[in-house]
Design a protein around this nucleic acid. Structure first.
Lengths: 97, 97
DNA sequence: CTATAATATGCGCTTATGCGCATAAGCGAC
DNA sequence: GTCGCTTATGCGCATAAGCGCATATTATAG
């Protein structure tokens, strides 16, 4: 459990919005998240890897899908941090034009 | 008020520890912080600028010192976030040898 | 004025981050 | 085996972040 790693994982709009979706405790595949957030496949996959490396989610192979879900038994301090981050205003992605 | 900017400001050990010191509401000069955290002068100065840009602290000239203090009237969601971040374990800086 | 102290900043450098593209890998259906 | 779908990853590139060094800036004291 690494404080900076967790905070860095939160400090990116796509990752934070992915966490918002995942925070419901249900399973979400990468394809769902990438569509919901408008991210490319590789981009989404790597962001999920970052969130997973921070320990905030777990993943599970299910046929051709990988199901991500909120990690169980997270320390309450970590849950409080993520909750607090999700309480901040949503950010829009920078548009190109 | 920018969510990612705030989270990025927290996602660095020296900045987070500086915030811990500053979070007491009292004024702290850069020289105090750099000594307390073992950071060089320019490093500390820039980190404080980052925290200030995120809106978490304000500064004030006082003779040759610049006094930083926790920003007043922060939205309660932001205060909750910083509190939650400060509740996580302190990180030690990577030592060279 | 000079000297000293505290802080900010321009510069160059190194490293980290984020991205798309292409491809590999995993899995089910056939 | 092949095909199709989903996900991960190697690669190259562009940009951002972080740092030290030196110097500029701001202020006090004498």
């Amino acid at each position: 459990m690494n404080t900076t790693t967790i905070l860095s994982a939160l400090a990116e709009p796509v990752r934070l919005e992915a966490l918002r979706l995942i925070w419901d405790g249900k399973e979400h595949c990468v394809c769902e998240l990438m569509k919901a957030l408008g991210a490319s496949q590789s981009r989404m996959s790597r962001h999920m890897a970052t969130i997973k490396a921070a320990g905030l989610v777990t993943d599970r192979r299910d046929a051709q899908w990988v199901r991500y879900r909120r990690a169980a038994d997270l320390p309450r301090e970590v849950v409080a941090l993520v909750d607090a981050a999700l309480a901040l205003p949503v950010e829009q992605e920078r548009q190109v034009a």
